[in-house]
Each structure stands twice: as C-alpha cells, then as structure tokens.
Design a protein around this nucleic acid. Structure first.
Lengths: 232, 232
DNA sequence: CGCTATGTTGATCCATATCAATAAGTGTGG
DNA sequence: CCACACTTATTGATATGGATCAACATAGCG
C-alpha cells in the first residue's frame, strides 16, 4: 500500500491507538485498489479474507434471499466494513458493491486477527467498534419493527438533517431506490411517503430536501436516541 | 455471590479462558438474585450498571416506542445480555423482564471494563461474543426484511427443530404472543400462519409442534446459514 | 441524440393489522 | 375444590399499509 494512504486509515478510531509497529505491519500486508462504480467487491457467503476500508467513494452492503434483495447499509469514507466476519473468520453475511468510483483498502483478515492478539489497544478499539456496530443494528431493528414506513422516512430525514448541522435544506446522499430498499419499502411507496410528509413541511425536488419547520416534523417523527443514531 | 454459582458462569465462553485471579475478582464484586416472573430488570434508556447473566429461568428483551412494543429476544441459561451497553458504558437499548422465576447474576459494568483492560483472554472472548451478537442481529434483520411472516415462522420452526436434535415433535419455548411479537407479527396473524403451514405438514396443538416431513417444510422455508442461526 | 435506468402517478391486489366475539386456559381466593 | 376473574388463543369480518402492475415522465449517459 502506498504510504500516502496511511494517514487516512490511521485516522480511524479502530487504528488510532495501536502501536506504530503494529500499524505498519498491518499496512505492509495490505493493498489499495481503485474500483469503478457498480463493482461487486464481496458476495455474501464468501470467506472473509479481507477487512475492507473505504477511503473514497461509497459502498453499498446488501443481502438477498430467494430472489429478493435488500439494502442493509451504505458505507462512506473513512470507515471499515465486515469487521465481525473478519474477527470470527466466518462467511460474510452481506454483499458489497461500489456505488461510485471508490478507493478501497484491503487488509488481510489473518493479519487483523494476529495483531489483535498482540496489541491490547487495537483489541480495545475493535471491541468498541463492534459494540458500536451491534448497537446500530439493534437500533435499525427497532426502527423496522416499531415504526411505519412514513415514520421511518421522517426520522431518516431528521437524522440526515443533523448530519448537515441542522440545515433546512440538504441533498439526499442515496439514490431514492436505494433509500427505499434501505428503509424497507418499494420505490413507489417511498415516492408516496415523501408526499405524505408534505403536511409536515417536507419538500422534495429531485435529491434536494427542504424541511420548513423542524419542530413540526419532529412532532410527527418522535425521534429518540434509543433508535436514531445521531452520531453517524 | 455464593461460590456455588461460580462454575455455571465460568462455563460461559465469555469466562472460560480468563485467569482465575481475574475471574474471582469479577465474582467478588457481583451478586446473584432470585426474581419472580414478570419482574422488570432493566428499562431501555437506563445506564448500564451491570452485565447480567441468566443462570436459571428466562428473560425477555423488548423495546418500545410511541406506545408500541416489540419482543427483541429471549435469553435462556446460561448466557449474558446487554454486553454491548456494558462495554460502551452507554444506555441500554432494550428493556428486560423475567418471563419465569429466574436466578440472575449481576456483574458491575465497571469491573467488566477494568478486567477487560488487563486480561487479554477475557478481551478476546468479549470480542468473539460481540461479533457473534452482531452477526445474530444482522441475520435477524435479513429475516425481517427478506421474508414474509409465513416464511419467518417456517424457518423459526426449523431452527427450533434443530435445537431439539431434529425431533419430529417438540414444544414451543415461547408463549405464542411473545413468539408473534418476536417474529414481527400480531398474535392473530401467528395463529393464521400456523394454519398456513398445515399444507407443509406442520401440526400445532397448544405448544406442541409436529413436523411430519422436514424436507417438505424445508422446500417451502428455504433456510440458509446466512440467515438462520443453527448454532443457538 | 436516442437508449436505458430511475422516478412518479394511478389502479388494483394482497399481506397483515385491527376490531370483535368466543373459547380455553391459568391462577386466586373463598 | 370450585367459582370467578383474567389472560391467552382462536376465529371471523373488515380495514389498511404497502406491494405490485402498468403507464408515463425524466434524467443520465454512451
């Protein structure tokens, strides 16, 4: 891997606290690759040979069964994905494909496990990261089981708004069809859900969202830190 | 904590590999309590003061929002729950209440974090456990998003059957209303779903399930290790 | 430019929720 | 030990959220 990529990766929580020696050892065995859009990186069920780090671009994680498919998450720079499979040396539970042109670091899973065993700081970081991931999925599960699709959309928009520092206007980060699948609905239903939020001051123009009155939307959406991840 | 309870806890993956010294240190600060059925142990949002270990009985984890409630999991002996909250020192995301009379060990979260920092074997065990938990929720999420309620029930029954060593007849471990909520449906719908599985050889009598022809049910349920956890 | 993928809108269908009534347990106290 | 209350399970009738199908519009893109 080119040393110019080291700082980005080092900046991740996962890698900040570990020793230089171990970090460099990890990096030496790793490599970085540029992928065009729509490239399959991983198929669910594959053995987990590498821990992946998205440096630029974005990657969609999805799963399928019996001819159906659903979007599970979108990974943006700089973060890792499929840490759990790497740790457990178990097959990936999700497929991954690039959404846009992306630069991705691949760290051999075996190296991750080796360094984990000798670097307590790295071990602690992994635990924190895994606990974080776990809690995120639990939240997402609650979102799915406790809310209607309209409520999920409303809360999604509020979370996005917070990401953009509470701006009244912002751009959707995802294609609508992907967003629909992520929220557990069809594109048609998402279209109608946007309409359904008009009474609460939500305006949509392509990917451009305007939230007239945040409080109004919040009264409907009833966001809570026990479901909605404001940190990400 | 009475020393007679040590072996059960020590037998958990989480605690097998750690040093005696650290294990005893953890146990000294812990205590064990007997609870009657239907006792609230934890409310979601509470600070995570203790790692809980179910020694006997069973505990239901649930979440609620805006007047709705859903069952997230049922914990049976001997296992821990809310490890992630303990590790992150963050509020619980789920509530916990005893289903039956239960004996539960409470290990102060601070102690868990302290020992984690000094015992590499314990640290590794925690990572493995968390990765396992994470993957379980991801599977459960896929189950919810990719399958109809009938398919979820069919696969649930097959997983239960495997737990009972493939026996053609077994007892449901959960009350039906709890099972319904766990599977993300109403009790009425569960009732009808059982009927809907009759053509595939599923017979229900109270909590007693009979699966006439496993292959028949499997052809409908299409179980896969990428969604269905055969290990638990 | 057309071509293809994405998004919208309308009509309809279906899975599941809700409401209501009844039956069957389960537990409690007299 | 039974009668009563109360919770759980089932069944039927109906409502509804969301999916599906179809047509059309729009927007990237080679």
């Amino acid at each position: 891997m080119p040393e110019s990529d080291y700082p980005d990766i080092r900046g991740l929580h996962l890698f900040t606290e570990m020793s230089d020696e171990h970090f460099n050892a990890l990096m030496r065995g790793s490599y970085v690759q540029n992928f065009p859009p729509q490239i399959d990186l991983i198929a669910e069920g594959d053995p987990s040979d590498f821990l992946h780090v998205v440096l630029t671009g974005s990657v969609e994680l999805s799963s399928s069964w019996n001819g159906r498919e659903t979007s599970m998450a979108t990974v943006r720079p700089v973060s890792t994905f499929i840490l759990a499979a790497t740790i457990k040396d178990a097959p990936y539970l999700m497929s991954a494909k690039t959404v846009e042109k992306s630069r991705i670091a691949l760290i051999p899973s075996q190296d991750v496990r080796n360094v984990f065993d000798v670097d307590p700081n790295f071990a602690r970081a992994i635990v924190t990261e895994l606990a974080q991931c776990y809690r995120s999925v639990v939240k997402s599960q609650k979102d799915l089981k406790l809310r209607t699709s309209l409520e999920r959309l409303a809360n999604y928009l509020l979370r996005q708004q917070i990401k953009f520092d509470g701006a009244a206007e912002f751009e959707l980060q995802l294609e609508k069809r992907r967003l629909a699948s992520f929220l557990g609905m069809t594109p048609e239903n998402l279209s109608r859900a946007f309409k359904g939020l008009q009474p609460y001051g939500v305006k949509v123009n392509g990917n451009h969202i305007t939230i007239k009155d945040q409080d109004d939307l919040m009264r409907f959406a009833k966001p809570t830190p026990l479901i909605d991840d404001y940190s990400i």
